[in-house]
Amino acid sequence: MAIFATLEELKARLDWTLDADEERIAASALEDASDLAVHYVGRDWPDAASAPRLIRTLVLKACKRHMNNPAGYTQSRAGDETLGWGDVQGENAGTVYFTPDEQKLLQEIGGRKPGLISAQVTAWNSRRRPVAAGLVPVAEPAPDAKPFPLFSDEVEPW
C-alpha cells in the first residue's frame, strides 16, 4: 500500500523542528492518513507518484492538523489547567482524520459521487421492443398484434 506523502514533505509544512518522538508520531500519522485515503477513494495505487496529487495534499493536510493538535483539544486554559474536547470531532479527537469535505473530495477522486441516479429497470427475461412515438405497445396474445395510436397522426402528431 502506498504512503502518499513523505516525512520530509510533512516537516516542510510544520512550524517547528520535530524531535525523535514527534518524527515517530508523524510517520505513523502519514501511514494512517494514507490508509484512510485509500478507504475513502476506494482503490489503491502501486506507488505515490501514480496517485492524483490532490490525495497527497489531503494526506498532508490531515497529518498537519494532527501534529498541531495530537490530543484533539478544542479548549485549553493555563490558569486552572482546563482542557476540553469538543463534540465536533467526536471519535476522531486525537487521531488522524479527514473532514467531511475532504472525505467527499476523496470519494469523487474514486468516482463515487453522492446524489441521485437514474437506473433503467426491466422485468426478468423481458425484451425491449422499439415503439414509435405516440403509439401504445400491445401485449402479444395474437401473432398479428400491432401498437395502436394514442395521439399520433402521421401529419399532425399532436
Results as ranks from 00 to 15, higher is better:
residue 1 M to W: 00
residue 5 A to P: 00
residue 7 L to I: 12
residue 12 A to M: 06
residue 14 L to E: 04
residue 17 T to H: 09
residue 21 D to H: 03
residue 25 I to F: 12
residue 27 A to G: 15
residue 27 A to F: 08
residue 28 S to D: 14
residue 31 E to K: 14
residue 31 E to G: 13
residue 33 A to P: 03
residue 41 V to E: 02
residue 44 D to R: 09
residue 51 A to M: 09
residue 52 P to W: 02
residue 53 R to W: 10
residue 55 I to C: 06
residue 57 T to C: 08
residue 57 T to Y: 01
residue 64 K to H: 01
residue 65 R to D: 03
residue 65 R to G: 00
residue 65 R to I: 04
residue 66 H to N: 02
residue 70 P to N: 09
residue 71 A to L: 13
residue 72 G to V: 11
residue 72 G to S: 10
residue 73 Y to E: 12
residue 75 Q to A: 07
residue 76 S to N: 13
residue 77 R to D: 13
residue 78 A to Q: 14
residue 81 E to H: 12
residue 81 E to C: 13
residue 82 T to W: 12
residue 84 G to E: 05
residue 84 G to A: 05
residue 84 G to S: 03
residue 89 Q to C: 10
residue 91 E to D: 13
residue 95 T to L: 06
residue 95 T to F: 03
residue 96 V to G: 00
residue 98 F to D: 01
residue 101 D to N: 10
residue 104 K to Y: 00
residue 104 K to V: 08
residue 104 K to S: 07
residue 107 Q to P: 07
residue 110 G to Q: 02
residue 114 P to G: 05
residue 116 L to I: 14
residue 116 L to R: 05
residue 118 S to F: 09
residue 120 Q to E: 08
residue 122 T to P: 04
residue 125 N to Y: 06
residue 131 V to T: 03
residue 132 A to Q: 04
residue 133 A to P: 11
residue 135 L to G: 06
residue 137 P to N: 03
residue 137 P to M: 04
residue 138 V to D: 08
residue 141 P to C: 03
residue 143 P to T: 05
residue 146 K to M: 10
residue 146 K to Y: 06
residue 151 F to N: 13
residue 151 F to P: 06
residue 151 F to C: 11
residue 153 D to Q: 09
residue 155 V to C: 08
residue 157 P to V: 03
residue 158 W to E: 15
residue 158 W to H: 12
